Computed example of a mutant assay.
Amino acid sequence: MPTISVIIPVYKVERYLDACVASVVGQTYPDLEIILVDDGSPDNCPALCDAWAAKDTRIRVIHRSNGGLSAARNSGLDICTGEYIAFVDSDDRLEPETLERALRAQQRSGADLVLFHYLCTDENDQPLPDRTPADREEEALMPSQFWEKFFTSGDACTYYVVAWNKLYRAELFHTLRYAEGKRYEDMFLLPNLIGQCRKILCLNFRGYRYAQRTGSIMSQGDPRNYLDRSEYLLEWTTTFAARGDTLRAEGLLNDAIENLAEKDRFDLSTPAQQQRYRTACRACADAYRDLAQRTGRSSMLLRAALLRLGLPVYQAFLKHKA
């Protein structure tokens, strides 16, 4: 059984794929299983994947119909056999010693999850100092401390959220998979992932070279323009409420309501999108009713009832209350 399984989803990255795979193949820690998931890529990527597998026996290739980043990661998770798991996006690169340093740090600390830092680069792998986040403190965190760091980190929350700057104990994914068909799939997964951890180790070592290129998923506009954001905020509301953190849950719920109130941001041109929007709005009312039951606060029942009448009614109430 390999020590680390590295899962690389592949889609329309013909220009970048060889450099990405080479950076994984060339790791100073060699006991790897490298899984290339061709997500129905229409360019030369399928052939490039097969060529790499012919050169290195550690590489396995999955060819599947296009299903998106989450589905590709899940396909890799379904077959990986390593004791630990790492994800690499196929237009990015690892520094040569990244996996070795992350693994040694895990072995010293016993952490369930190890985070390493990253460097932003352009499409030609040249560093972008103005986009690269600042150095950070190296520390071991319990889940409650992780969330305090996350919610106070502002724009630096990328470090805590993304899939690709982490070494995971494989058992964390025994019951977890990425939400398919969603943007911000890392956000949907994060609460349940952290909920399984006893210790999280945060490193300052910049082991990941994160390419900033046009056309990537991460470059496709303001998150507030997509219903996925409100949907993951509602899921987070439910998760934190169930854990007894009703104050945090209410804050997340109010963020979701505020986002949904900006209705003109969303593409509601299809019946399916309109139904998603209505479902999210109803979920806000249900979430306030659940919080009322947990806290005994009648004011939350009022908010739930007003939300049932519609967001315009609820907004009028807030304006009058102010």
Rank of each mutant, 00 (worst) to 15 (best):
R183D: 01
Y184M: 15
Y184V: 05
Y184L: 15
E185L: 07
E185W: 07
E185N: 04
E185T: 07
E185M: 09
E185H: 09
E185D: 14
D186T: 05
D186H: 05
D186S: 01
M187V: 07
M187W: 10
M187C: 13
F188A: 04
F188M: 04
F188P: 01
F188T: 02
L189A: 11
L189S: 12
L190H: 01
L190M: 14
L190Q: 02
L190S: 08
L190E: 01
L190Y: 04
P191Q: 10
P191F: 01
N192E: 15
N192A: 14
N192S: 15
N192Y: 11
L193K: 03
L193V: 04
I194Q: 13
I194E: 11
I194S: 10
G195Q: 08
G195C: 08
G195L: 03
G195E: 14
Q196N: 12
Q196P: 02
Q196T: 05
Q196M: 12
C197P: 00
C197V: 01
C197N: 03
C197A: 06
C197F: 00
R198H: 14
R198D: 06
R198K: 14
R198C: 11
R198G: 14
K199A: 12
K199F: 08
K199H: 10
K199R: 14
K199I: 12
I200V: 13
I200T: 06
I200G: 10
I200E: 11
L201T: 13
C202S: 08
C202R: 02
C202N: 10
C202T: 12
L203S: 06
L203R: 01
N204G: 14
N204T: 02
N204R: 09
N204I: 05
F205L: 09
F205G: 03
R206Y: 01
R206I: 00
R206Q: 13
R206V: 08
G207L: 02
G207D: 06
G207Y: 02
G207C: 03
G207E: 05
G207A: 03
Y208A: 05
Y208L: 12
Y208W: 06
Y208C: 05
R209I: 03
R209F: 03
R209V: 03
R209C: 04
R209W: 05
Y210I: 11
Y210E: 15
Y210D: 14
Y210P: 10
A211C: 10
A211Y: 02
A211T: 13
A211M: 11
Q212R: 11
Q212D: 15
Q212L: 10
Q212C: 10
Q212A: 09
Q212G: 07
R213A: 04
R213K: 08
R213E: 11
R213Y: 04
R213C: 08
T214E: 15
T214W: 12
T214Y: 15
T214Q: 14
G215V: 04
S216A: 09
S216E: 03
S216C: 08
S216F: 05
I217N: 05
I217C: 12
M218Y: 12
M218P: 08
M218K: 13
M218G: 14
M218L: 11
S219C: 05
S219A: 07
S219K: 07
Q220W: 00
Q220L: 04
Q220K: 06
Q220G: 02
Q220A: 04
G221T: 06
G221F: 00
G221D: 06
G221Q: 05
D222K: 00
D222I: 04
D222F: 00
D222C: 02
R224F: 06
R224N: 15
R224T: 09
R224A: 14
N225R: 08
N225H: 13
Y226Q: 13
